[in-house]
Design a protein around this nucleic acid. Sequence first.
DNA 1: GGAACGATTCGTTTATGGTCAAAGTATGAA
DNA 2: TTCATACTTTGACCATAAACGAATCGTTCC
Lengths: 234, 234
Amino acid sequence: MNVEHYADAAISKIAAAIGEPARARMLYCLMDGHARTSTELSVVAEVSPATASVHLNRLRMERLVKVQAQGKHRFYSLDGLEVAGALEGLSVLAGGTRSKFVPSTPSRLRAARTCYDHLAGAVGVSLHDRFQALGWISAGAKDRAGAYELTIGGTRAFEALGIDIEMTRALRRRFACACLDWSERRPHVGGALGAAILKLALKRKWVVQDLDSRALGITNYGRREILNRFGLRV
Amino acid sequence: MNVEHYADAAISKIAAAIGEPARARMLYCLMDGHARTSTELSVVAEVSPATASVHLNRLRMERLVKVQAQGKHRFYSLDGLEVAGALEGLSVLAGGTRSKFVPSTPSRLRAARTCYDHLAGAVGVSLHDRFQALGWISAGAKDRAGAYELTIGGTRAFEALGIDIEMTRALRRRFACACLDWSERRPHVGGALGAAILKLALKRKWVVQDLDSRALGITNYGRREILNRFGLRV
DNA sequence: GGAACGATTCGTTTATGGTCAAAGTATGAA
DNA sequence: TTCATACTTTGACCATAAACGAATCGTTCC
């Protein structure tokens, strides 16, 4: 086996991994920072699940994506910010001066949107910051990067809003974690707690879901509620 | 013809262009910022001139390199800093943390080296600045970007050093131009005059050439001469 | 246990694209 | 003009890898 150890060879392998339409579509889709299953990505890439699996395996070999098993699902996501950085470098070339991939999405996506199953966009980030400022959540232990602990006050507050924390904790997934929002470049609340918050916001009609996109519309009622309850003007 | 107009498609085409070993070698080689002929690049890429030509044509289509015809030579160089930026983004992934392409070249390259057929590196840049300060060369007309004019004093001075200016002018190539030095990020003297200066420096044994690289060694004699003649400590 | 589902592996087909020899074009030198 | 050099284009060949159906593996839910 001929081991290549020159930088240009390493670059070419990585670029080749990106340079296949189906794989590029997957990576581009994952640039919003959240994980997706191989089936979801096969739809995005417009290939069969079998083909998507092969592609994802290759991307994993090249350290472009990482995978996290969760029950019978396997969630794929970009393996680090450097990967997003490299993709952005390429997109600068791709788009000429009109780069900036995220702003190319409708601007309403920036205000509020779903990120897999939780609340993202400017609203998601604002809430995240507010929850921290109010002392409802706090950064978890060092060894569990990005995880959040719920404080006693936070538990009471979320319960008061109508979220069943005990049941949320019982779900087989990370309870609460920092999910990096690519357009905002700042984290919002992900995990089971994030999902519960989105569910609540939808149930209470603070936001309404766009059927064929990840965009969320904030209702006037929701705007008032968020201002009153969290002191946030959105 | 199905026109793709999504960013992921554009990214994949560009990444595919980079993701071929021979092309990656060419691009990586051009990251030092100076232009090379297709023949030179065919050696770097370890393919035949014909194959190199095909590759370079594709890189040109993707706006990764640009070409500048000069007599029967065609000089290829990276098409803009964005390209170097994108390549660096990839090299971060490729090399882990050991990226930084330019500093990876031996530090002696920074002192003095050849740039195609003329003198580059810190010494080349210093001399360029000194020639301007002494009023030997001056920036040419606006419409000939990067070209230099030789002043009357400069003509006398170079003639006194032993450079046949009339003959140098007769060569079918740009007489004198600013050649951007990637490691220094500042220009040195290129063109026929630059080549004549290097030839002189080699003939007078101010510098000696490393056989298997572009590095130049400055002799003690050369150090003294450059100090005496130009007032430069190198 | 077994049914249902998600995901991966295997085997085969197909096509894209890298390769170079040879011919062609363009420029410079004698 | 003629030759030499630098480079590109063309055409034919071949290897790599992308694609999918079918079979398999692994997990969850009755």
